[in-house]
């Protein structure tokens, strides 16, 4: 698998405070990588390091295979765009002038990309209105448009839906998906709004107290969090035989519990288990949300009980 970004035991200390600790992660090409963590978990610090705004205390990272300690990293950076924390826009300029300004920074030969980018983020009708008079959502979209100047193929977004109204959240989500699917842009997106990330991400990195707790793909997470019927039974071996007979997907758990993943009539399930000589003490619907998955990970990270 080709990786756009890889970090190796990355660390960042601010005096005695440890913001990042031995963080290792990999962002595959073409992914929408959701960086999940609480406030203060180290998400923004990580993004600042990747963007070259700050220097790691220890460890390294590579962008498009170029190590951050090599002078060549500058070339790799030209392939990325970022919105870290607040949108980086000149408040005294219009949306169009902001984009022209970034074109100058990049040294683009002309401003032909400006109308297209304005249209892409839905700001084509803002005219001479200055960015300081924009709503939060408009500023966020302008920030993304500025980051898209020069056609990057890696986009870093820090809490892009923070503070937005529901419509703004939908607009940003659709924009990110469009960029990923139509322009093949790899997106690294940090957020603590888990349900929102769930609608976007193809890969997840769970971070807490500056440490990477776990990296999973969306499929793996889906499998972990999928809905099921959980039954307490007297004999798991007999239950397995009965469930094999029904041809359903299941998983035997510790403590004489069985998770049945396929949609199955509860009456039929209980009947089949009884016929196989397995008593059923209780049956309940069970599904683990992304939220509870994250909380269980955080608990494990603090020395609590790990996620099964």
């Amino acid at each position: 698998m080709e990786y756009v970004l890889q970090t190796q035991a990355l660390g960042k200390n601010y005096r005695k405070f440890t913001a990042l600790e031995n963080l290792t992660m990999s962002v595959p090409r073409g992914a929408v990588y959701g960086l999940v963590g609480k406030n203060g978990a180290g998400k923004t610090t990580l993004l600042r390091l990747i963007c070259g705004l700050q220097t790691p205390t220890y460890g390294t990272y590579s962008l498009y295979g170029r190590n951050n300690q090599e002078p060549d990293i500058i070339k790799a950076r030209r392939r990325m765009g970022a919105v870290v924390e607040t949108p980086s826009i000149c408040l005294d300029m219009s949306a169009e002038n902001n984009l022209r300004q970034q074109c100058r920074v990049l040294g683009l030969p002309d401003f032909s990309c400006v109308p297209e980018l304005l249209e892409l983020v839905g700001l084509e009708g803002t005219g001479k209105k200055k960015a300081k008079n924009f709503s939060l959502g408009m500023r966020q979209r302008l920030g993304i448009a500025v980051a898209l100047c020069g056609g990057p193929d890696f986009l870093v977004l820090d809490e892009p839906v923070n503070g937005l109204d529901p419509q703004g959240i939908v607009e940003i989500r659709e924009l990110i998906l469009k960029l990923n699917r139509e322009r093949d842009i790899t997106v690294l997106i940090s957020s603590h709004i888990l349900e929102e990330l769930h609608k976007l991400a193809t890969h997840y990195g769970f971070i807490d107290s500056g440490r990477m707790l776990r990296q999973v793909s969306a499929e793996e997470l889906e499998a972990t969090c999928r809905k099921c019927v959980r039954a307490d039974v007297s004999d798991t071996q007999a239950a397995a035989l009965a469930l094999d007979g029904l041809g359903v997907d299941y998983k035997i758990l510790e403590g004489k519990q069985v998770d049945v993943f396929d949609a199955v009539n509860t009456g039929k399930l209980v009947q089949a288990l009884s016929d196989a000589g397995c008593e059923v003490y209780s049956v309940q619907n069970h599904d683990e949300s992304l939220e509870s998955y994250f909380l269980s990970l955080v608990g494990a990270g603090k020395g609590g009980e790990g996620h099964a």
Partner: peptide, 18 residues
Amino acid sequence: NTDYHDGTIRNKITVGRS
């Protein structure tokens, strides 16, 4: 300071300006 305040200095460094 306006560059710092508006965050536009980040736009320069992130895209590879030394």
